[in-house]
C-alpha cells in the first residue's frame, strides 16, 4: 500500500499529493508516469510524475478532478493509502544537448511541464516558459516555473491574470521577433498542443509533445494507448509518452480520448452523488 504523506490543493480542482513509493522514486525521471488505483476494484489511471525525492522515497502527483477516480482520489487524505502505485512507466523526456528551449504548459499539463522545465534548467539550458490557464483562479505552479525559467509568460483566456490570450500568442511573437529555440516542448490539452505544433512548424522549430491517452496496463500489453505518429502505429506507454509533435495525428487522438465520454460522465456524477450523500 502506498501512503499519502502530504496533500494540498493548488486550486479548486487541482490537487497535489506526495506518495510514499520508494521504488518508483528511486528510478523516476521527468516525463515518466505512474499508474494508480485508489481502491480494490478501482480503475487504473495513468498520471504523469510531477516530482520525486529519491532520499525520502516520495513521488509527487498533481491531478485535476475530471472524473470518478480523480474525485475519489481527491477525498483521500494524509495517512490514507492508495491500493496500487506502479512505475515509473514510459520514457524520460530527453533534455540532452538542448541550449535554448521553450516549455509550453496548458492547465493541469503544467504539472508535467514544470519538472521538464526544471530538468532542462538543471541541464544548463536557457528555459523560456509559457503557461496558460482559463482564468486567474486556475493558475498553478507560477513560482516553480519562475525559478526554472529565464523568462516566464503567464496567459489567461479571459485576461484575469497575466496576459490575455492563448499560449500560442506569445510563442508566435517570440518566434516572429527572431528568438531562437532549439526545441519547443508542449504539454497540455490536445487542442493546445496541436496549435503549438502548428506555430512551431511555421518557424521550423522542432516541437515535442507529451501524450496522455487512455491506458490500462501501461507496460505494452493492451495496446489501448495507441496513436498514429507519422502514419505508424505507436504505443504511448512504451514508445512515449513524448513524441515529435510534427508527426502526431492529433485529430485521431482527440477522438480516441472521447471514446468513453458518456460512461465517464455518468460514473463521475454517480461518484459525486455518493460523496454528497455522505456529507448529508
Amino acid at each position: 500500500m502506498f501512503e499519502i504523506l502530504e496533500k494540498r490543493f493548488l486550486n479548486d480542482t487541482v490537487c497535489e499529493m506526495q506518495i510514499n513509493a520508494p521504488l518508483v522514486a528511486k528510478k523516476a525521471e521527468p516525463g515518466q508516469f505512474i499508474i494508480l488505483r485508489t481502491d480494490e476494484d478501482g480503475e487504473r489511471i495513468p498520471l504523469t510524475i510531477a516530482g520525486f525525492d529519491r532520499k525520502k522515497g516520495t513521488v509527487k502527483i498533481i491531478f485535476q478532478v475530471v472524473g470518478s477516480t480523480t474525485e475519489i482520489l481527491k477525498h483521500k487524505n494524509v495517512g490514507d493509502c492508495l491500493q496500487d502505485f506502479v512505475g515509473p512507466l514510459g520514457n524520460a523526456t530527453e533534455t540532452e544537448g538542448v541550449k535554448n528551449v521553450c516549455v509550453v504548459g496548458g492547465g493541469v499539463g503544467c504539472a508535467i511541464a514544470m519538472p521538464v522545465a526544471e530538468k532542462f534548467a538543471k541541464d544548463k539550458a536557457n528555459v523560456t516558459s509559457v503557461i496558460g490557464f482559463r482564468n486567474k483562479d486556475l493558475v498553478i505552479l507560477e513560482d516553480e516555473f519562475k525559478k526554472a525559467s529565464k523568462e516566464l509568460v503567464v496567459m489567461t483566456d479571459d485576461g484575469s491574470y497575466g496576459r490575455q490570450g492563448n499560449v500560442c500568442v506569445p510563442l508566435e511573437e517570440m518566434l516572429a521577433s527572431g528568438k531562437k529555440f532549439d526545441k519547443i516542448f508542449a504539454i497540455g490539452p490536445l487542442i493546445m498542443m496541436k496549435f503549438v505544433v502548428e506555430t512551431a512548424k511555421k518557424y521550423n522549430v522542432p516541437c515535442m509533445v507529451s501524450m496522455n491517452p487512455i491506458m490500462i496496463d501501461g507496460t505494452g500489453m493492451c495496446g489501448g494507448c495507441r496513436l498514429s505518429v507519422d502514419g505508424q502505429m505507436k504505443f504511448a506507454c512504451v514508445d512515449g509518452p513524448d513524441f515529435d509533435g510534427y508527426k502526431v495525428d492529433f485529430d485521431e487522438m482527440m477522438s480516441r480520448n472521447r471514446m468513453y465520454a458518456d460512461f465517464e460522465r455518468h460514473k463521475y456524477e454517480e461518484t459525486c452523488n455518493l460523496y454528497k450523500k455522505e456529507v448529508k
Binding site: 495496446g223 495507441r226 502505429m233 504505443f235 512504451v238 495525428d249 477522438s255
Partner: peptide, 18 residues
C-alpha cells in the same frame, strides 16, 4: 507484449480493440 494489428486503415477508430 504488444498486440499485433493488421496495419489497415481505420484501426485507430473508436471501437477497435486488441
Amino acid at each position: 507484449g504488444l498486440p499485433r494489428f493488421m496495419g489497415i486503415k481505420g484501426e485507430g477508430l473508436n471501437g477497435v480493440y486488441s
